[in-house]
Amino acid sequence: MIRSITQLKSEEEIDRLLEGLMRVFIVGCGTCVTLTHTGGEPEVTAMNESLSKKGKLITGQTVVPVACDNLTSDMLGEFGPQMDQSDALLIMTCAFGVQTIARQLKKMVVPALDTLFIGKETGPGEFNEVCIQCGTCIIGETGGICPVTSCHKGLVNGPCGGTDNGKCEIDRRKDCVWTMIYNRLLDLGRLDSMRIIQPPRNHLGEPTPGKMILPEA
C-alpha cells in the first residue's frame, strides 16, 4: 500500500506559524502519519502538552481515521464548537489531509508536518519513494526499477560516474539505482535493454499540476 511519508516540522517553524494564534485545535490522522509516528495519537498528545507549556490554549484534539477522505468534515463535526473557538487548526497529517480539511472547513490551517514523498514501507521503519508520477513510465525497459525516481539525477540512460560500491555518492544510505537495474537485467538475461537510448522525457506526459477527468461511460 502506498503511503504519504511525512516529517515533523522544526519547533521553531511551528512556533513561527502559530505566532499570534492563541487558541489551537490539533488534528492527527490514523493512517500514514500513525505508521510513521508523525501524527498519530501519541504525537498529537505530545504536541498538545508541548504547546500548552508554551502558553497556548488547546481547545481540543482528535485523530481522524483518514484525513484525506471526504468524510473528514463529518468526523470533525462533533468538534464544531471547539473549532469555532479556535484561532487555528494545527494539522498533523500529510499535505493531502491538510488540504482536505482546509477545503472543508472555513478555518485557518497550519501544517505541523512536511510531506516528503509518496512511498512504501519496505522494511520495519524503513520507507522508500517508489514513483514520482512522471506520467511517462519507462520501467518496462529497466527491469521494473524506476531510475526517474531513484536516481538522484533522474538519469534514464545509465549511471553517472559517481557510483560508490553500489551506493550513490551523494547518500550512502541509498543504492545506486543503475547498479540495481544492471543486476536485475543481468538476472533476467535482458542486458540488451540497457542499449536503448531513452529519448528526452516528455514532460507533457502529465504536466504539473496533474488533472484527470474520466470520460463518461
Partner: peptide, 23 residues
C-alpha cells in the same frame, strides 16, 4: 563526453562507452 572506467560496476563501463558512441 567523459568516461570513467573506474566507477563501479566495472562491467557497465564499456557498454556505457558503447552507448555514448551510439549516441
Amino acid at each position: 563526453a567523459a568516461a570513467n572506467p573506474f566507477a563501479d560496476p566495472f562491467e557497465i563501463r564499456v557498454p556505457r562507452l558503447a552507448k555514448k558512441v551510439a549516441a
